[in-house]
Amino acid sequence: MSDLNTQAVARYKNNFLREVEERVEEGDMVKMCMQCGVCAGSCPLGPHWQHSPQKIFMMIRAGKREEVLTSDSMWMCTSCYNCIVRCPRQLPITHIMHGLANYAHRLGIAPKGQPTREFAKTFWNNLIKKGRVNELTLTLAHYFANGIGPGIQIALNMQKIGLGMVLAGRLNPMEIFGGHSVKDLNGFHAVLAKAKEIEDRKKGFSA
């Protein structure tokens, strides 16, 4: 168990709902769910999840902290927004799903190797480096995430598309050498740092 997680447990004792309300993006709306099940029935990923959004919200209210935060359910959300447009209680379900995933990740208890989580990490790390997404390095990092062998296999499969993109000017092979950055990279990093500081304060990670 990570330090952050231990601290969180100590801080909220058994009140997981309060923890979610304070620390998870739009978590204060969880209490408004009326358990109608419309989101569960609307989600295209429904059959593939362990817990539907409806169930996740009920679990939060029932104090099932461990089960929720270590679940891979919210990582399955594809952001289709079907649930949001249908929820009669106007819960920002998609956002809460991402918020929960993010929070679990932050505490270090999100499921290891969960593909969405892995890709999100890769994406984020790529993005913050230069303030913009480097398609080439992002793609390659993604291809080789499972090792050299499979990476080469996927790269070969995608060869044609890649060449086409290069010819169309949509992919610059030179980007492999670090790539270009946003104009004010230091400023961008300062924005991120400030945002993190504010968020930490708001969510009670720092004083």
Binding site: L17, K31, M32, Q35, R61
Partner: peptide, 11 residues
Amino acid sequence: RSAQQKGVIFT
């Protein structure tokens, strides 16, 4: 809804 807002838990 008002009760939910006040934090009443509905199970």
